Amino acid sequence: MPAPYPLLDMPPGDIKNTHEFTAMHMAAAHNTFIQGINAIVAHAPTVPPNKIQPFLIFCLTVLDNIHHHHHIEETYFFPELEKKLGEGALSRNYEEHADFVPQLDELQVYLKTVQEEEEKYDGMVLLEKIHSFSDSMMLHLSHEIPTLEANRLKAVFTEKELKDIDAKVLSIALKTIDFYKAIPLGLVCSNPATPWFPPLPLPVKLAARWWYSRRYSEAWEFGPLDLYGKPREVSVKA
């Protein structure tokens, strides 16, 4: 089995500095996706039969979160930044989505087919489909961070403008996610080195741990962390 994909290094800066926070926030978000993909790869060959359905929920939620992230980027975040950075300033970020999203979609179709029991689960098939796009996706996740470099943003955006954009992104995200899936996944796929991410109000984090996580509790066992940020063992018991 290939080694896990390494998490992205955090850009230099201070999360309290608005211009530096943008790239740091993006890197932290990308690391949750890497954590999720690594967890899928680690568990795919050895999922117990009675855990296949929860595992499929975990996998599909990872993919849904990646799609959701890209949708907000393409429909609001990048266009908003390009109003001042200049049209096409972030075009590479859009273009690279096309390098892996079609294969990601193919994996999503496969997982749903297995979930509906129209096809038998095969961990090797799952791994093959992940490896058909994962290298391209990991490159994209790393390429995107420098496009949000602090000095580039500081040259054209005030702190208030960036804070307003960030607040709008969070508002859009919270209005368009499934709280019973996206928020628990964000907790179990976070990075212990960045405990401030996901940047959710404490009441929402508590609700995720005590309420939202319950509906699909078996799915979150596949995350690299528990709901309190403590690393798990890779194995999931039958």
Rank of each mutant, 00 (worst) to 15 (best):
E221A: 14
D99C: 01
P203T: 03
D135W: 00
A44K: 06
G223E: 04
E161D: 07
I40H: 06
P4V: 01
I66L: 07
L206N: 07
G36C: 07
D64N: 06
K129W: 06
A3Y: 12
H70K: 06
V114E: 08
Y180L: 11
H143A: 04
P201I: 04
P203C: 03
P198L: 02
E20S: 06
L170V: 08
E96W: 03
E159A: 13
G88N: 12
A155M: 05
F33N: 05
G123R: 13
L139D: 14
V156S: 14
K163E: 14
I40S: 05
Y228K: 15
N38T: 02
T46G: 09
H140C: 10
Y216E: 14
G223H: 04
Q115A: 15
E118C: 10
G88F: 06
L104E: 10
L111E: 14
D135L: 01
V236I: 14
I57D: 09
P184Q: 10
P4E: 05
P49T: 15
T46D: 15
I172Q: 07
N151K: 09
N191V: 00
P4F: 01
H25R: 11
M137A: 12
P203A: 03
Y180E: 15
F77Q: 12
T75K: 11
D9Y: 09
N38E: 01
W220Q: 13
L141C: 10
K237S: 15
F157I: 09
Y94D: 11
L7V: 00
L141A: 11
T32W: 00
E128C: 05
L60H: 09
K163A: 10
S142E: 13
I40M: 15
G13W: 01
D14F: 03
K160F: 03
H69F: 06
